[in-house]
C-alpha cells in the first residue's frame, strides 16, 4: 500500500542495519512513511527536519553520544506529541519513562511484532 496523505510517519532508529531495513521495508509495505536512522544523533536531525514524524521506534542499546533512553527523554521534552516505542535486549525503561506500558518491545522481536506494535500506537 503506497503512502498517502493520511499515512502515519514513523522514524525507525536501530544500529543493526539488517533489522533497521527489515522493519523499515515492512512498515513501508504496510503503508507507513518511514525514516531510518542508525543512531540517536541522526534521529534528532531527522526529527528536527521532519515535524510530520508521529512515531519513533528506537533501540536502547546504541553507540554514539546518546542511547535510546536519552533519545526517549529528549523526544518527551522537545516533541511531546511524538509517541516513542522502545526496544532492548537488556535494559527496560522505568514505567514513568514510558508514556504507555505497552510501548516497550523486548528483543529479540519479530518484524511482524514490531509492525503490529506500531500499528497499535498509530491508532
Amino acid at each position: 500500500m503506497p503512502p498517502n496523505d493520511h499515512a502515519t510517519t514513523v522514524l525507525v532508529v536501530e544500529d543493526e542495519a539488517l533489522l533497521l531495513f527489515s522493519i523499515s521495508d515492512e512498515l513501508t509495505a504496510q503503508g507507513f512513511v518511514v525514516f531510518e536512522a542508525s543512531n540517536a544523533d541522526d534521529a534528532v536531525t531527522l526529527l528536527t527536519a521532519h515535524p510530520e514524524i508521529e512515531i519513533v521506534f528506537t533501540d536502547i542499546d546504541m553507540p554514539g553520544s546518546m542511547d535510546g533512553l536519552k533519545l526517549l527523554a529528549l523526544v518527551r521534552e522537545r516533541w511531546p506529541p511524538v509517541r516513542v516505542l522502545v526496544t532492548s535486549g537488556k535494559k527496560r525503561p522505568t514505567r514513568d519513562m514510558l508514556m504507555d506500558e505497552n510501548w516497550f518491545l523486548p528483543k529479540p522481536y519479530t518484524t511482524a511484532g514490531v509492525v503490529a506494535a506500531i500499528q497499535a500506537a498509530a491508532q
Binding site: 543493526e16 539488517l18 533489522l19 527489515s22 522493519i23 542499546d61 535486549g89 537488556k90 528483543k107 529479540p108 522481536y109 519479530t110 518484524t111
Partner: peptide
C-alpha cells in the same frame, strides 16, 4: 546478552 538478543533478532528477520 546484547549480542545474543541482536543475533536472534537478525535470525528472526
Amino acid at each position: 546478552e546484547h549480542r545474543i538478543k541482536n543475533i536472534l533478532a537478525m535470525v528472526s528477520a
